[in-house]
């Protein structure tokens, strides 16, 4: 596919132009961490930008969302009003390819054959994804496809002070004024090879899924989860975790909130019975959902290797180690990747 060479100035002009029509979101730095926020119209993420602290999923599937409101008026039928669909047109600039890919995985759930979520759908349709390929992987990263274009409308490569722009989707092509820029020749495109690539071996391979098939009742889970404190860091910071809980609030709204399979309340039933009573079952569920149930249903693992869970786990329970341990048939590995 055609790639175009832009200077930093060209890029800024183009983004400024997009800003006239779209709300442009970009990684914004605050106290050493980046998160997506309103783009100031002049700065671009510098070398310290590796990835955002929070994954982009909350831009499409917010942690807390009102689905409908109801009101009871005495002597009348209750008035039920669906929440308005989000209409804002947005550009997300600077998303990493792993996170862009996570959106294509969320699409399978929220825009699948069985169910289309109108809120998610509206946000997806109204948003243009411009991804920015990493310069080098983080210590905690384990993605194996740093150049993945899945989920992106336009992909950008950083080459010193220039940018290579590659429109991917129709939406992306329509938003990029390709006629105004030169197509990059192969000498320049070759420079992409200088970008450092993660050498992490692919951990979520087919034989892992097969292995998981056999170990549901294995004692390995008890051992793996021993140090887990059952907080929700891994699931809330995961770009693909998408479980939620729907409750009513006292103001007459039905609300959808993120939930995590790590919490005891996740499976607790009205009777008080909890089919996943301890951390053992909960950790197993999380691993199984990502690397067994999701691939069984959608043909792809629900992990993009962004490494947020690895980096932020309070007790350094490393998913890479968990998977390797499972692959090696439960043998305890002596630390270090």
């Amino acid at each position: 596919m055609a790639k175009y060479l832009l200077t930093k100035k060209d890029l800024l002009i183009w983004l400024k132009k997009l800003q006239q029509e779209y709300e442009v979101l970009a990684p914004v730095k605050e106290k050493k961490v980046y998160n997506f926020g309103h783009w100031d119209g002049k700065s671009l993420p510098d070398k310290s930008y590796q990835n955002t602290l929070k994954p982009p999923k909350d831009l499409f599937f917010p942690q807390h969302e009102i689905l409908l409101k109801y009101k009871k008026v005495k002597g009348q039928r209750p008035i039920i009003k669906a929440a308005d669909l989000p209409e804002e047109k947005r550009v997300i600039f600077g998303i990493r390819p792993c996170d862009a890919k996570s959106l294509s995985l969320l699409d399978k759930v929220f825009l699948g054959e069985e169910y289309q979520d109108p809120f998610y759908q509206a946000r997806r349709l109204n948003t243009l994804i411009i991804s920015l390929v990493c310069r080098e992987p983080k210590e905690s990263c384990f993605c194996t496809q740093p150049f993945s274009v899945e989920g992106s409308d336009i992909v950008l490569f950083e080459l010193n002070d220039k940018y290579l722009v590659e429109p991917i989707s129709e939406k992306g092509k329509n938003c990029f004024p390709s006629a105004s820029y030169c197509e990059a020749d192969f000498h320049i495109i070759d420079k992409i090879k200088e970008i450092k690539i993660n050498t992490y071996e692919e951990i979520a391979s087919a034989d892992l899924t097969e292995k998981l098939d056999l170990i549901f009742d294995s004692p390995i889970w008890k051992e793996l989860q021993e140090k887990c404190i059952n907080c929700g860091v891994c699931s809330f910071l995961c770009p693909t975790c998408h479980c939620f809980d729907i409750t009513d609030n006292q103001q007459g709204s039905k609300v959808r909130n993120w939930d995590s399979c790590m919490f005891s309340g996740f499976t607790k039933q009205a009777s008080g019975h909890n089919p996943r009573p301890s951390g053992t079952e909960r950790l197993r569920q999380r691993v199984m959902h990502k690397f067994k149930y999701f691939p069984d249903k959608y043909g792809v693992v629900a992990c993009v290797g962004c490494g947020r869970c690895v980096e932020k786990c309070p007790v350094n329970l490393d998913i890479r180690q968990v998977l390797l341990q499972i692959k090696n048939g439960g043998e305890k590995l002596e630390c270090r990747m």
Partner: peptide
């Protein structure tokens, strides 16, 4: 504790 998987991090060990 045993050594963790990231530099400077240690992890609980049983």
């Amino acid at each position: 504790f045993t050594r963790g998987t990231l530099p400077g991090k240690c992890t609980p060990y049983f």
